[in-house]
């Protein structure tokens, strides 16, 4: 029961997000708007109810199951992208390598910089 009550809260926030998207023509999905609203609501409220926490944990732990039908689609895609597979593979492999490298270097540099700044204070 408590978990279902938490699920209802998630569904209501999602529907509210969808409504906002449709009314104000926001280029972000209703789920994302609901997530932002949820974070701010919790920050204002200062705590998470057990019902909401258990419902969100339940859904997040089966995230992989929820995306599976979409992943299966990859294997049944029409050959409309044939001839572009090399571009896709290069973008994914080289692009991800570069972005991981950039993130690590940026983050490490900034953490060192802010640690030094703190030491100088």
């Amino acid at each position: 029961m408590p978990m279902l009550r938490g699920f209802l809260v998630l569904v209501l926030f999602f529907l509210f997000g969808e409504a906002l998207r449709l009314v104000f023509l926001i280029p972000v999905s209703g789920g994302v708007l609901g997530m932002i609203l949820m974070t701010f609501t919790l920050m204002l409220r200062g705590r998470v109810s057990n019902a909401l926490a258990s419902a969100s944990q339940g859904l997040i732990s089966v995230l992989v199951l929820l995306i599976m039908p979409g992943v299966v689609g990859v294997f049944f895609m029409a050959s409309q992208f044939s001839g572009q597979w090399l571009a896709v593979a290069a973008a994914l492999l080289v692009g991800t390598f570069l972005s991981v490298l950039s993130t690590l270097l940026l983050m490490q540099g900034l953490v060192r910089l802010s640690a030094r700044g703190r030491a100088n204070d």
Binding site: F7, L10, V11, F13, F14, G17, E18, S29, G30, G31, V32, G34, M35, I36, L37, M38, T39, L42, V48, L52, A53, A55, S56, L59, I60, L63, L66
Partner: peptide, 9 residues
């Protein structure tokens, strides 16, 4: 949809 909202927690 609701799973995305759940990421806010």
């Amino acid at each position: 949809g609701p799973a995305t909202v759940a990421l806010g927690i």
